[in-house]
Design a protein around this nucleic acid. Sequence first.
RNA 1: CCCCCGGUAGCUCAGUUGGAAGAGCGUGAGACUGUAAAUCUCAAGGCCACUGGUUCGAUCCCGGUCUGGGGGACCA
Length: 859
Amino acid sequence: MDDVKAIHSGDYRATAEKEPAYAKITTFFAKSREYNCFYAWFDSGCIDQKNNAELTESIPAMYKWYQNANVCIVRLAGAVVGSNISDDDWFQRGWTLQELIAPTHLKIYDVLWNPVTTDRYDIIREPDWTTQGNISGPLARSLKPENPPEPSHITHEILNATGRAPLVISWMVHRRTTQPEDRAYCILGLLALYIQMPLERGEAFEKAFFRVQMYAFACTRERGLLVWIGTPSVYNSMFASTPESCDFFLQTIDPISNEDAAICVIQPSFDVPHLVDKNTVKMLIYSLLDSSIISPEHSSAIMANITPSSQTAGIPGNLFLGILGSHSLKNSENPFNAADWEWNSAGRLPSDMPDVLHYAVLLVGNPSLLDQPFARVHTHRHIWLNPGWAEGAEPLLAGAFSESLSQPNQFLSLYTMTSATPEERYALITRGLDEVLGGQQIQAILAEGKHPKCYWGTAPTGRPHIGYFVALNKIADFLRAGVEVKILLADVHAFLDNMKAPLDLVAHRTKYYEYILLAVFHSLGIPTSKLVFVQGSSYQLTKEYNLDNYKLCATVSEHDAKKAGAEVVKQVESPLLSGLLYPGLQALDEEYLGVDFQFGGVDQRKIFTFAELYLPKLGYRKRAHLMNPMVPGLGGGKMSASDPNSKIDLLDPPEVVRKKIKSAFCEEGNVEDNGVLSFVGAVLIPISQLRKERAEGKTMDDAEEGKDVETTGDQRPFATADAPEGTLFTVERDEKFGGNLHYDSFNSLKAAFAAKDLHPKDLKLAVANAIISLLAPIRKSFEENEDWQKVEKLAYPDPNAKPEKKKKKEKVYHPPPPGKGKDANKPTESIAAVPDSTTSSPPPPIVVGPEVTAQASES
RNA sequence: CCCCCGGUAGCUCAGUUGGAAGAGCGUGAGACUGUAAAUCUCAAGGCCACUGGUUCGAUCCCGGUCUGGGGGACCA
């Protein structure tokens, strides 16, 4: 229909009637009338190919449009009645697949508009769920052989069934499109109705194919998408890289035998904003069972082994089903890295294995084959497994599966909750905090053996300062306690809060924040693979979110909104409306991020109580709130982002750090109003504590802490080599004043300072050195990362560079005539200044200014 | 849409019947203390929003523009 496109885009009024496409369209309309249709739709004329928004909306919907049409009329451009119509190009193209499959009533004409059969309809499919198994009509089941499965044989029942994905995808193997990415896009509607996936023209096929699978999976949880054989997508190894991987309907695949094995690897990518959850793993097991990879008798044996009714049925022969996981890998790295699987070398699952994994591997087959690469199944020789599993020697494994099937949320929790009691976890989660609201909720979650979810949000406004260490360090505690942590980059909030980040900067600042937060986490030894970064605008602009926001606006009084934001939202003389929305959005985030509690500074308290009050009024669950203490500013008062001297930026170079610490207010013996001392208590001691515990191996759930390959910088506590056991902070001091001082707690340090045993200057030097050592790795990663540096320039344009030195207008001084002017009543002075001017005529202008030339007098 | 008021140093604001721009706070340097603060001494900083006009001369008077605030717009 390329000719139609020409009409569509060109000036058709003059030439339209001469175009062949015009005749085609009018005939199409005439045929439509024969089927009593008064409205007709055709793709090339009714979708503006240049309008990306329209495309995005249309493409997934087209399937539904075809399905709901009274009749779908097809004209084969390369066939005439009598020839073999199934050779026509229409059966080879990608976009035409849904035209063949979706309609309830399909009528096919040849190139001369002769109907290919005398029947009113050629293929009729019943759409109703009771009759969807029916397919009839003269061309149904007769155009092509039934095997391999062919679209003209397929009923809607099959298309709606779980496990349909490989079938649908396999049809694309032999179909083609003009644009490579369309080969992926055109099955979107078949896989998931009503899905909205942004289309990118010129996108590489593999990326497009991955996104189609991901969106379809997110939308439908169609587990058939996980069933494929071949090379995994580079974007996410859950999914196939090409449609050919799903083509096992077309080729003979031997079921897994005792001499064979299959491995599936689940690896979420950054594009999938959640970790592999238990249900995904479970679904993968089912999809393996569904697939023809596993022979029926093995399949039933596995089922028997994992269903709760049977105890220890055992799997015949060497066949076994195993599961592994790792959370130490970076998304981009090869999951088959031997080093990352070392923890399995003990021959059993680790006792503190979390139920949320970054990688999960399901294995079916003969473990002795794992030392060799497989032809059909992607795998790698480096995986090590304990063969003992195969013989059912690990009854826990079977127990885990049966547990998982009876209680969907308990999958693998057998392994995760053995190392620490709920009480210990709760104590770890809440230690060092200023206040906890709704702690019982967290205790209840822990008591059930589940992992609480939390989020910490930050609005990308000014450059982050060292106060961030308090919150970020606390997150290490959360991870150790098995909390799932999301980091919200609240870009929308940054804009709403008095436009602290203008719209053109906010995207860059978000990126900048992501870089710097990652660098800080790495410098603290916190494995970032466990953290999920979420950008606020990724969900805060959706329809549902906005509707909830409006609901909230109709619930909250202006007075309450204003009060809730009083501490956090910048208070100005004439506040903007956006500031009133701020607390509401933050409340909704708890629901939309699906967390159990929110974590933030005590300055967030009003917003937190606001959320606790109003979220239930929208029918949502009330969340718990944890608040960390605030670090006071160096000059006393708040550490404010707007006052550069009250804060130290995370990227400040050592000289600046020393200078700022030096100028801080720090009165001898004064422990109340002392920013330097408070910083030791709020940041340095906790970090030291964390490092000490890590050195002692007390990291509980977070086994990777400090071992992450990304970890940068010195990870020792702030204590010198000569410090006694248990020292958390050493103050180096000149022998003249008595030598080094060692403290094992903040209280002892504070007491020493109050008693004036510890001099402010010594403290300042020690603190400055500690801060410098904390910041060094962050600065280093900044200097090594060119992208980050580019983003920094875009995010924080130099204000001094912007106003291109306004040229000064030359000033011409016109002395007042004698007797006039300000000093007229002091005649001696003015006459002395202009001795020649005795008349009343004004003196000539005197040009003032260094670079003034003749131009001045011209003007 | 109508009326009123404002825009001067980083901040809060003075000021001039039109005659080379001021304070307080803040900032920087120095002195005094084993840090800082306090105190003292010194210093830096302004297209007086933009743009036309009147004038020998405009931050000031007049017009326009931009921008911020307050009030009104037939309800009492």
